[in-house]
Each structure stands twice: as C-alpha cells, then as structure tokens.
Design a protein around this nucleic acid. Structure first.
Lengths: 123, 123
DNA sequence: CTATCATATGAGCATACATTCATATGAAAG
DNA sequence: CTTTCATATGAATGTATGCTCATATGATAG
C-alpha cells in the first residue's frame, strides 16, 4: 500500500513505457482514419465483384449491372464510391461511360486478402 | 435496324461475349463474400489502430484500451472481431491475455492500403 | 471459501450504409 | 427542337455495426 515513490501508481499493469514507444510509432490519426475509410470500400460484396470484373476488362455501367444482376442505379452508386476512393476511373465514349481500375494497389490489396482467406492456417 | 440474325437482340450494348468470359474468371460467390467480410474488419479506425499497435508488440487488453483511450469493453469486442477473422491470436499468462498478430498478411494488406492513400496520383 | 483483477459477453441504442424508387443530366439521333 | 439511350443522383428505408452499460467468466490471492 505504501508507495515510497511519489508518482508510481500501479493499480493495474504498468505499460506506460511500452505505450509511450508505441505512441511515437503510430501514424497520425487522420492517416488511420483514411486507411479505415479505404478498406471500408473493399468491405462490400458488390464492390468486390465490380473490382474483380474490372480485373478482366474495362466495362460500362450497364455491362456491370447485367453481370451482377443488379440495378443500374445500385451499380452507379457503388461506382461513385469506388471513384471517390480513387480505385477506379472512367472515360466517356458517346453516351457510354467506361470504368476501369485506377491503379495496381487494388490488385495487390485484394490478392493479399484472398491469400489470407484461402490459406487455412499455415505460417 | 433489320437484324438478319435470329437471336441477336441489341436494344442495349451487346456485351454478352465479354460477360461470358468474365463470368468464368470470377471467383465463387462465397469467396467474394468472405473477401468482403475480411476487408470489413480493416474498415474501422479502432481496429486499424489496434493492428498498428500490435505491429510493435503483443499487448494485453488493458494496454490497448489505455493506448486508444477507449473502454475495456469496446476493445474486447473489437479484439473478438479481429480474432474471428484470424487476424490476431491470443495467449494467456495468469489473469492477463496477450494479443498478437496472427500472420503477415495483416502487414502487407495495411501496407498496400497505406501506399494507396499516401501516393497522390503517380503511377 | 470470498475478494479482486483482467477479460468476455449480451442487450440496447444510435449511427452508418446499401439498395430501391423516382427523377435529373447529358449525349446523340431524327 | 424532341426523343431516346446511358448514366447520375437525391430521398427514403431497412439492415448492419460500434459503443455503452451491466453482468458474467476465469484466474489468482488471502
């Protein structure tokens, strides 16, 4: 009960030293927030399907909605989300708008995720 | 206007051939669902913070809640989500339970995401 | 045994979000 | 100009989910 040290309070684990180090290593709060926001985009089956489809070829909106058997509106909303996250870009050709993958991170992120869920439990 | 071919119906784009090919390339629906579920786990700031903290060291629950300034209950709930997705594991040491990263995919997935949000728009 | 510490869990609530429906925009054809 | 095709968007709704609060479990100390 009697602590000779003035400032030492130890009613729970003392991880102050460890936490201090970790705090210096953590990215900025904004970065962590943006990261979570990015992964949220991958966290929906419809969007994952769209991205996988775009692995094969650029596609117009109606092709995607036909492929997934979903409303044009639903697809359009999701494409907007993907575009806002810079995961896809689009180009216009007459009335048609073609969507395509914006960069290679999409592939590597999904590939890593795929490995995680397919590998049973090795490593 | 006059289509001599019997079966050609072209009231919208004809992407039947393209879609047929893409359909064969798409992973199973269950796989796509599991993938989205996995990324959902990364799609939350609290869980991202926890994972980043575990990059540095294994940690007990109360250390994490102290680090993030959040309730023990909230952290415990999130650790369960992370554990269910096999992203973290735990070991017991007396009353304390230490959590640690389950495999390296966590690092590579987060690293790829980090690259995406930090690179402005090169490549 | 009881008390305490560390963690887990179930219910409830409040917010976030994916789809639908109706409508708007924008380009090309007549 | 008007019509049609391709896509976009706003509002509404139902569902999913993160946190809180209270309580339960599980291990150690006394």
């Amino acid at each position: 009960m009697a602590d000779k040290d003035i400032s030492v309070k130890r009613n729970m684990h003392n991880h102050d030293a460890l936490l201090l180090k970790i705090r210096t290593e953590l990215p900025q709060d904004e970065t962590l927030f943006n990261l979570a926001d990015l992964f949220k985009v991958f966290g929906d089956t419809t969007r994952i399907k769209i991205l996988y489809a775009l692995f094969e070829s650029e596609l117009c909106v109606c092709a995607i909605s036909e492929l997934l058997g979903m409303t044009q509106s639903a697809i359009s909303h999701q494409l907007r989300v993907l575009k806002d996250s810079k995961l896809v870009s689009s180009r216009r050709e007459g009335k048609t708008i073609y969507y395509f993958l914006a960069d290679d991170h999409v592939r590597s992120i999904i590939d890593q995720g795929y490995e995680h869920i397919t590998e049973g439990s090795d490593k």
